[in-house]
């Protein structure tokens, strides 16, 4: 099987889930690099050049709020989910679960007993 082909499809599948992963993780305030590491540790590797502009975009859309923390020697911009962001997260999560269930049903996973 062509590796590039698989990588392309995987990337396509993951693309939309980055937002979901960010909103989920940012219920706790985090700065950019820490978020990157948290996501990577959770097995959700995102490139910095994708993640950092995305955080700005979500902030501009009102889904995230940000605050500079200058207590430490290195000032950092902390992001967290806004009330709007939380409601978007709810909807995205519902969609994610229903997609998972729908795909599972299509796959016949119920019949094989794989899905609980």
């Amino acid at each position: 099987m062509d590796e590039d082909l698989i990588a392309g499809h995987l990337q396509e599948l993951r693309r939309g889930t980055v937002v979901l992963a960010c909103l989920t993780t940012l219920s706790q305030p985090r700065y950019g690099y820490a978020l990157l590491e948290t996501l990577a540790d959770a097995g959700f590797a995102v490139d910095g050049n994708t993640l950092y502009p995305l955080l700005r975009r979500l902030e501009k859309q009102g889904l995230l709020t940000s605050e500079w923390n200058t207590d430490e020697a290195r000032p950092r911009k902390f992001y967290r989910v806004s009330p709007d962001g939380a409601s978007v997260l709810d909807q995205l999560m519902t969609e994610w679960r229903s997609l998972d269930a729908a795909i599972g049903a299509l796959d016949g996973a119920h019949d094989r007993g794989d899905n609980q």
Partner: peptide, 20 residues
């Protein structure tokens, strides 16, 4: 409006990555 803020954040991010 965004340039200086992005610059400041990017500096910290690069510094964090370098430290790691």
């Amino acid at each position: 409006d965004t340039g200086p803020d992005v610059a400041r954040e990017l500096r910290a991010t690069i510094a964090d990555a370098v430290d790691a």
